[in-house]
Design a protein around this nucleic acid. Sequence first.
RNA 1: GCUGGAGUGGCGGAAUGGUAUACGCGUCGGUCUCAAAAACCGAUGUUCGCAAGGGCGUGUGGGUUCAAGUCCCACCUCCAGCACCA
Length: 825
Amino acid sequence: MPYTTNDIRRVEEKWQAYWAVNKIFRAVPDPAKKKYYVLEMFPYPSGKIHMGHVRNYTITDVIARYKMMRGHNVLHPMGYDAFGQPAENAAIKRNTSPSEWTYKCIDDMRAGLRKMGFSYDWDREFATCDDTYYKWNQWIFLKMVEQGLAYKKSSPVNWCPSCATTLANEEVIDGACWRCKEAVVQKDLNQWYLKITHYAEELLADLKTLNNWPARVVAMQENWIGKSYGCEIFFKVKGGDDVITVFTTRPDTIFGATYVTLAPEHPLARKLSLGTAQEAAVTAFIDKSIQVSKSPRMSGEERKEGVFTGAYAVNPVNGATIPVWIGDYVLMAYGTGAIMAVPTHDQRDFEFARAHGLAMRVVIEDATHPGMTPEQMSAAHESEGKLTGSGDFDGIPNEEAKGKIAAWMSDKGMGRVSVHWRLRDWLISRQRYWGTPIPMIYCPACGVVPVPVDQLPVRLPVDAPITGEGGSPLAKVKAFVEVACPACGKAARRETDTMATFFDSSWYFLRYCSAHNDKEIFDVKEAAYWMPVDQYVGGIEHAILHLLYSRFFTKFLRDIGLVAVDEPFDRLLTQGMVLKDGEVMSKSRGNIVDPDEVIARFGADTLRLFILFVAPPEDQLEWNPSGLEGSWKFINRVWGAVETRYKATNVAAGAVMDADDKVLQFERHTAVKKVTESMEGGFKFNTAISAVMVLMNAVDKYKFSIDIQYKQSILNEALETAVLLLAPFIPHAAEELWQMMGKAVTSIAFIPWPVYVEDALRTDTVRIAAQVNGKVRAEFVVPRDADEKLLRPLVLADEAVQRHIAGKEVRKFIVIPNKLVSIVV
RNA sequence: GCUGGAGUGGCGGAAUGGUAUACGCGUCGGUCUCAAAAACCGAUGUUCGCAAGGGCGUGUGGGUUCAAGUCCCACCUCCAGCACCA
């Protein structure tokens, strides 16, 4: 075998060193060249790289190298998302510091990345825990404070008891902490928020411009932002000045509102029962509901529980007196925390009303059950119909009535048209050590004072006690906490919370544009050249959190004049997971395949080729050892073919070619075309690679006599093309083979991508099929572009065709040029 | 329930409305070998048939078309995300 394990190690190390020493992939802005910014979601340094990283970064690397060959000026950087809680846990466990542990992990990861042969511009490498980076986190935060987009408020927050910290809404998955899966509870705390809701409208509207994002990511963000159109309606409480404002998307059902329901946390919930017979029951119910953590209350499986407040309100449209209830299915966090209940046309209200014996009124006709009474209903009628029992609006289709009733109520002062969002402001305070200190100071005299910009960075102290027991570790570092107020100079205290680490990753793609700029956050001109990221690649798990925050930050930085784009990422590819035996590879499952071991045995090129070939990048990838060996064999075939059959020659291929030559030429151009189309049509690496395999099959079949010297040139061309087409996928072998062919160059990465000639794809004869009544009955080899005149006698005379049309009349004879003929009898 | 996506050989997966299953893996047979591995050559949807040659085949049922994996309608199943969001 030409390519042994020793060869691999030698060849791969040789080229990795060559690329590094000569800074082959250094990116420099060049207005004369078309730029291409390709980016992977940078890793959290928690150890060595794993197969998920390998897949993600191989995908981007192939794209980067392909674009280089297409003549683009490519920016392909790498760094580390290095702040975060696991470093604190690891520090406790290993009796080291988060910093030491993190930088050690970064060294390990860097080594792993280099072994894979990725084409990074290593000059732009950084870690978010470098003070030269997080200084600019603080800078952004202060800018947001200045613009009123960062603010502090006291409110109920998501609290993870196990991590002993707050969580953003986006970090709560199924009522549990996204990291440790512990149930999240609600707690009242005074915390820092970023006003992402300021951009809600734009974040939603601009999703429409992201045509090169996966549909599901766009859909998930749309759901998350959650805009609903409807109106607020005012219900006066009888016997007082209180007004209950409800939010509804169904103003068409207002005449059917037979009671009002408040969330247990609603400010009026307790107040309305005061002094009524219901007071004790209400208090008990509220206390119980609030204690139950968010998740079971929202599960939808629970019976809908509630209690009457003892108070009544007035339905503004018909003056009806209706009871006010408290229900645990109403959420304070959405809308106004109060709803009008229309049991006949809302399933939740229906269940609640049935459970508590509340009144119902039909106001939308069910066309399939005309004249149905509430007593006859087994479920709410939520679909369309004409209005009934709704005064002047009777007979109007309900969709139409929505607008009419809303406008009418608005006119009469009964309500107003309004829009509600699901998106909440982003809570960024974390009671942790290993993160960016929030640059604020609390002064007894001046209040909350920002750290002046020239005093940045506020450095993380190295000696904070990390116990994992909760509470901000920074609060225990006297030298950190005690500070002179920047405004009045008197003794003050620093903020001791740190920022959520998603803050760090919300703008790192901009920092790469001028990674070591110590004067500004980034060079505006360089960012203008490189941005937006043309192709972003990462896991679907970031569909909401990271991608939404990054879009928010980009819009903010645009508004303060630092970036020119509205959106940071033009194209997004979400790569699939790596599975083994049908399950995601993970340490806890013990089904890890270590990239290092694969590289030691087969080399990085084999690993890359296997990962790219075995499944499309977006799909799940099932680890398959024989598939890996198949990739190894293929590289060897190419290697062997070049080594044994490629010979320098002076005799060029002329106009005279025999059939064998023409076949190989045809296959060569076909391969170029197919690989190019697979790359351009959405990076279908698996089909790109298969096209080169087909070419190599043709090379193996190509027989030639040494006496006919021009044939060497045809063979050489085919081999050169195969190596060039493979260069993005197996860069080490490609560089080596290219060199073996005697081509001295800087790097194969800068050799122009091969082009195909349409004429070469036009063979003299074509194989066509003949169908009779839609079934293929025969095949013919005919001259290219043969027409019906030529084909008709030929096809009809065929024995197999005759058998199927015998005795029948040929009604139609359809010719699809160079494909088939279709006969209808 | 809502949203997005997917159902194709033994397996991973290919197919601008035009010869379904490219390419790879696996399996079977062969060459080489004392033997094995590697390598190379060939076969491989299913079914009936000795063969020639048929039948059936892309989740199900309809439809459009000379022609449907692909387009339309109605379903089923699976995966993912969201979800008492008023």
